[in-house]
């Protein structure tokens, strides 16, 4: 088992108002099988022992599914590995002596809370605006009453798999939340259960996205490139089409 020395340059910021800055740390004995976040755990253990404030960062599942983690690593959301959330990244990706720069996802709509932790509640408000099927508990018909073509169900799943991490926003030069919003629309709008509310949902979510201060989409496709679950930008085209249809 090989170990390495890793140089870290990490964004530190006391709170939302404070001016942040990078700080440099050196970490020895990094094991190649460690996950990226476990490497940061080790750094924090060292900092605590030295009487310093540990680096705050968000995580929960550490399995790439909850969408809590959202670090920008060497300028790339979730780091270098395609289709991999940063909690699923392992140190074997790096070599002895490497320098790794770690920042929070930066966007006006994601204010920093502390260090690498940001406020992503804007995403909740976009869902709140219309990201659901309006069915009350108890009002559902028998599940097999409405067959859904296997292919449609599969496509819906491919969009529904979005973990809401915000990497798409971090990667976009315009800080657009189009991929996040469009994936929910593409999931619900194509299912028979979601069709009755398609237009209303599309308009409400798109307008909320704009109200939150996210930028427009200019087709850079950076979002798709960093998405840890591979949501396709064809959802954005679909969203635009549906939106235009709905408002005219």
């Amino acid at each position: 088992m090989s170990t390495m020395t890793i140089n870290l340059k990490i964004w530190r910021q006391k709170n939302t108002e404070a001016k942040g800055e990078f700080q440099v740390y050196k970490l020895n004995d990094v094991n190649e099988h460690m996950s990226f976040l476990e490497m940061l755990d080790v750094l924090n253990e060292n900092l605590i022992k030295e009487g310093k404030d540990p680096v705050e960062f968000d995580y929960d599942c550490r399995e790439g599914i909850c969408g809590s983690c959202n670090l920008v690593v060497n300028g790339r959301a979730h780091g270098p590995k395609r289709l991999t959330a940063v909690c699923q990244l392992h140190m074997r990706t790096y070599s002895d002596g490497d320098t790794i720069v770690i920042e929070p996802p930066r966007a006006a709509a994601f204010p920093v809370i502390k260090d690498l932790v940001v406020d992503r509640s804007a995403f909740d408000r976009i869902i709140e605006a219309g990201g659901y099927v309006s069915v009350k508990t108890g009002a559902a018909p028998e599940a097999n009453l409405i067959p859904v073509q296997e292919e449609v169900a599969n496509q819906a799943f491919d969009y529904a798999t979005c973990i809401g991490c915000g990497a798409c926003v971090a990667a976009c030069p315009n800080s657009s939340a189009s991929l996040f919003t469009a994936s929910k629309l593409a999931h619900l709008n194509r299912l028979p259960q979601g069709k009755p509310e398609r237009e209303k949902r599309t308009v409400a979510m798109v307008q909320q996205m704009e109200a939150e201060g996210f930028g427009d989409c200019s087709n850079y496709a950076e979002c798709e490139a960093v998405c840890p679950v591979g949501i396709s930008i064809s959802s954005i085209a679909e969203m635009r089409k549906n939106y235009l249809k709905a408002i005219f």
Binding site: Y132, V135, T137, L191, Q193
Partner: peptide
């Protein structure tokens, strides 16, 4: 009832060729 409720919400469960 749980399955009924989830399907109505748009939960994309695995389906067979016939769409069931």
């Amino acid at each position: 009832q749980i399955i009924d409720q989830a399907v109505a919400q748009g939960v994309p469960f695995g389906r067979d060729y016939g769409g069931l």
